[in-house]
Each structure stands twice: as structure tokens, then as C-alpha cells.
Simulated assay, not measured.
Amino acid sequence: NLGFPINSNGDENSLQVFPDGRTALFATDRDAPGNLDLWQFELPGHAAAESVALWRGEVRDADSARPIQASVQVLDSLGNAMGMQMSSPVDGAFTLTFPATERVILQIDEEGYGFYSKTLDPLEGQEPFVSIRLQPLEIGTVLVLNDVRFERSSSALDARFQPDLEQLARTMLRSEVRIRIAGHTDGEGSAERNQLLSEERAQAVAQFLEAYGIATDRMETVGYGMSQPIASNDTAEGRARNRRTEIEIIQ
């Protein structure tokens, strides 16, 4: 009960707070006893809740489009779990909420498939509904890792939490696949420097996986430098997409 003037002496229930943490509604019969209506109002400052972001989607097989019941998890920037659910086995649907004040990491995982990992920034806004297609772990499958964190212009891995690499390690620990790790750079700098950097970054990823217990004979590395862009190098966004690590299933 929030007191007058929000509440009255009528029959009032079913308070619901909107994702913004400030707007709410409830059922009341104040105007017609015995007949409930919905009233919307602004919560006073002392009663306001933390605002949350909503992310809705579905998980499906990339080849057959059939729904997949997969683990859907939200992590904070340090890798701590903030929430987990399973997508629906009927239609693959899921709905996530997370604080609208910080970046979070969404990870979707199911045995026999490559994982999905994405950093979400609530301040940038999110698509209202996303269809996520998981690729079966079979020869020829290529997983693109856009969030392998290296020091700038270096092959040294950032010491912070590495969501993509840790999830890749877990995927390999429960399977017997062999992979080719391919490093790619953007178009800034010389071709020679970028070629060397891409090779060294691929090797750094292999060393990370080895430290997790992945046998070295299950991995090979290659660098392509700036020779295989997937976006324009004329924009910061395009360059960020080109700086990537690709994992190909080779056996």
C-alpha cells in the first residue's frame, strides 16, 4: 500500500511495475465498487524500482530451423551469473531481464552445437526480438568470435574475463572435435604487421585453450591478416567486425 493519493479504501490489488522502474499499474474498484479497472501511475521516488532491460528471442537449429531447448544465461562483465533459464522446447522462446544500467553478456549454449555469445549494452537499445541460430558442431562449421579481448595492437590477451574463450573451452571439453583457429585483423597498419599479428593472436587463443586442458593435437592455428575482411575498414564498426577470431571444425 503506497497510501493516498495512489491507494484508496476500495478493493485494490495486482500491482505491476514497468521495466523503467517508475511506471506502474494496479487494479482498483474505487470508481465502481465491485468492478475492477486498471489504473496507471508514476511511482514516488522512495518506491521506484531499478529499471531493467528486456531481451526476447528464440533459439533454433541453423540448418533445420527447429526449436532448441538451450541454456540461456546472463553474466556481468566479470563473468558472474546474473540469471539463467532454458529456452522453450516448443518454440525455442526465451525472455530475459537485466539491469538497464550496465553492460551484460548473453550466452546461449546446448550440447552438440556451437555457442552464441553477445555483449548487450542497454544504453544502446536492443532489438525487440532476435532469432538466434545455433550451428551444429560438424566438420566445416565456422564459429565467429568477435569478443576475444586482446591488448591494443598486441597478441597479449586482456587479463579481464574472456567470455567467448571460456565458453569455447567448455564446449571443447565436452566434445572431441578438432579445430582450426584463424586470426583476422582490420585494415589499419601494414599488411606485413597485420599478418604477423593475426598469427600471434591465433596462437594466443590456442595457448588459452591449452591452459584449460585442451590437448594441443586438437588445435591448429593460422593467420590471415587483413586479407579477408567481412566489413568495410572505413568505419570503426566495420574495423571492429574485421578484428575477429574464427573457429573452424576440421574433425
Results as ranks from 00 to 15, higher is better:
A182T: 05
V90K: 12
I68S: 01
E151D: 08
G187I: 06
D11P: 10
V52C: 06
E138H: 07
Q73D: 04
Q203F: 10
D29V: 02
R56E: 09
T28Q: 14
L143I: 08
F41K: 15
G238A: 11
R133Y: 11
V59Q: 02
R66A: 11
E237V: 09
S153G: 11
L96F: 00
L54S: 15
Q73N: 12
E166L: 08
T235S: 13
M172I: 08
Y116N: 05
G79D: 09
N242Q: 04
A100Q: 04
N194Q: 14
P44G: 05
R60K: 12
V59N: 03
S64E: 14
I179D: 00
V142N: 04
E42Q: 14
Q85F: 02
M219S: 06
G34D: 04
I6H: 10
A27Q: 08
G125A: 02
D61I: 07
N35S: 14
T28L: 13
I214R: 10
F150K: 06
T119Q: 15
R239V: 02
A24T: 01
A191I: 14
V142A: 13
L134V: 07
L96N: 00
N7S: 12
N242Y: 01
R152W: 08
E210H: 05
V72W: 02
L209T: 01
I105K: 00
E246N: 07
S64Q: 13
L78N: 09
E188I: 08
M219C: 04
S77L: 13
S14L: 07
L168C: 00
E210L: 06
L134K: 00
A211F: 05
S71T: 14
S71N: 15
G189Y: 04
G225Y: 09
N9G: 09
I247D: 07
I247E: 04
L36D: 00
G83D: 06
A62W: 01
A93P: 02
L120I: 06
D147K: 12
A204Y: 01
L197M: 09
S88M: 02
V104L: 01
D63C: 10
M86Q: 10
R103G: 07
F98T: 02
A53E: 08
I108V: 12
I68T: 03
A202H: 00
T216H: 12
G92H: 01
V148F: 03
T28C: 14
E200F: 09
A169M: 08
A182I: 05
A81E: 13
E127F: 07
T221G: 09
E192K: 09
I230N: 14
A65E: 12
R60P: 00
G83V: 08
R174D: 14
D37G: 08
R243Q: 03
F18C: 05
T97A: 15
M219I: 09
N194P: 03
T216M: 15
L145H: 00
V90G: 10
F98H: 03
D76P: 01
S232Q: 10
Q16M: 04
D164I: 02
L145F: 03
S8T: 15
D109R: 12
R180G: 07
S77H: 10
F26Q: 00
L145D: 03
H184Q: 12
P128V: 10
E188D: 08
G187P: 05
L157I: 06
I181T: 11
D20R: 04
Q73R: 10
R243N: 07
D109S: 13
I179A: 03
G45M: 06
S175D: 07
I68Y: 01
E220T: 10
G57S: 03
S87Q: 03
I230T: 09
E188G: 10
G21I: 09
